[in-house]
Write a protein that binds this DNA or RNA. Sequence first.
DNA 1: CTGAAAGCGCTTACAG
DNA 2: CTGAAAGCGCTTACAG
Lengths: 336, 336
Amino acid sequence: MTIKDIANAVGVTPTTVSNVINGNYHKVSQKTIDKVQKVIKESGYVPNKNARALANNSSKIIGVIFPKTTEGFMQDPFHSQILTGIEKIVGAKKYDLMIKSIDNYEEIYELMRNWSVDGFIILSLIGYQLPQLEKFKNVPAVFIDTYYEELKYINIGSEDYQGEFKAANYLLEMGHESIGFISYHIDYPSVISMRLNGFKDAIESKGLPFDCSENVLEIVGFDPIGKDCENKILDFVKDKTGICISADILAIEIMELLRSKGYRIPEDISIIGFDNVYLSRLVNPKLTTINQDIIAKGKIAAENLINMIEKNNKEKPNIKIPTNLIIRDSVKKIND
Amino acid sequence: MTIKDIANAVGVTPTTVSNVINGNYHKVSQKTIDKVQKVIKESGYVPNKNARALANNSSKIIGVIFPKTTEGFMQDPFHSQILTGIEKIVGAKKYDLMIKSIDNYEEIYELMRNWSVDGFIILSLIGYQLPQLEKFKNVPAVFIDTYYEELKYINIGSEDYQGEFKAANYLLEMGHESIGFISYHIDYPSVISMRLNGFKDAIESKGLPFDCSENVLEIVGFDPIGKDCENKILDFVKDKTGICISADILAIEIMELLRSKGYRIPEDISIIGFDNVYLSRLVNPKLTTINQDIIAKGKIAAENLINMIEKNNKEKPNIKIPTNLIIRDSVKKIND
DNA sequence: CTGAAAGCGCTTACAG
DNA sequence: CTGAAAGCGCTTACAG
């Protein structure tokens, strides 16, 4: 079933059929429109989008790009929720979705030319790789959580600074005076460095001293936490009553470690996470954390991209999703 | 940059360029091959796959189909891990990946015709909808976790029966005599009904009586668990020492519920899950469970699909991933 | 071994 | 309002 078949069945030319399919109604009489639509419906005609894309140099495909990692990117619940949000909007707006993990930013360009992809959502780009995207400049794209001074694209981030400020501030208000921040490797600038800034400013806003070597522990390597790393954490925690941890997943790992060493949480030490992932309310004690609506983030990314594509919108705003404190059971009040 | 441009640059026709791109080397002289490849490399030529798909009626696109749910499908860590496995193989084999959530199985057919999609991986199809796929019969497709008598497609499942048998058997060997099985809604046949059979047979293999109304609790609705549901669970658990739960996520929810009612795990009641999701080792106590390699499942699905496509393989095997017991801390030994 | 030509299914100026 | 025709970038019999 092709446009030509429809045209023959109705007794009209492919031009006319194409016009009704594409809603160019002002070019066709109502009588013809009706006849064509009837035959299309009855025949179960499905357009060949490859042909359409070839003729239009535009596919209504959106590409989601993420880094090729050994563990597998979607493993991380954060990313799968982003994808959930993206997929909802993309589907609702009648676009198709391609996903691809890459090693090398040339591959984005290649994918674009392969299929005449209309736009991209790019997850977890490392900032310093941005210059490689020069030739990509005129392609509609939105980034997620990419901080880089010269970013010429829309970025969808979160209020990371404000969120971690709230977290640290809560600890301080609960009477904690010696607090720390633990994170995986900290890139600058990045989501994590923003959070660290919020932490620092919360401390200083109370007139307390902040010192990187005192208040911050950056851990290398990934889960499960290695032996040497364990000792660093135990050492770091010793003289503190409360810890902000840059992500729930890591917070949960660390809670597990501390528990195994005989710490009671929150009696012996208070913990606060970031992200409010699903499992944060299922661990024991339930984790106090900073919430962000990750699915909304994916949706906003897709909505902005589609706006760029359809309205040829040239603005490059830096959008930030709000973050808010979720109080559960992993922080205790200190009275003195 | 098109094939025609390359042809002009080399001084040859598009036919020849196409032949070298497609590896039809026996049709071209070595000298010409070299010249064409050199120009392709230098020019940064990228093929237009829409044109190729249009000419070939085949796209090297693989579609991953999943149901449109309100919560969002990829939320579930199980599904995002499957997707991780699929993406790895699809990328490695130089295919492209489209994903789409659907309400209605007609949409699969539509997607196929839209893009000349070469094959599909279909997740969480409800068995009784299979007959709707009649017209889809000749399209390469593999299903994941779909049990249906008349399945004419490859299905990639797990040893659900054997896994739950091992789980229940472990409880029995640890001295538990009154044990139960808790699950969300049980379809027949399905992953869950297979697990229930394994549970039942383990009990009966010890010469113990099995009675559905005694040993099985099917809960309706989803997380978080509702009030009425809570009471059912508490009631069910009262006269038992060990519980098999059909999925880790549910097990973790239930552990949380029991803890809040004063139960100590495993001292007061033993719990065993299924799936070995990431968080099962992060909860307290660490969850004893049945492991399956979910990423491998995704990989096997993709490998089988691509074999079907490329070798025109007509076999429809029913593949099952092994399951094994992971002993952690949520089951205690009962000595009498 | 190489090329001319038709065809895949659509869109889009252009003419009438 | 309708249609004839060229074009999008590829592939593939077929002829030489």
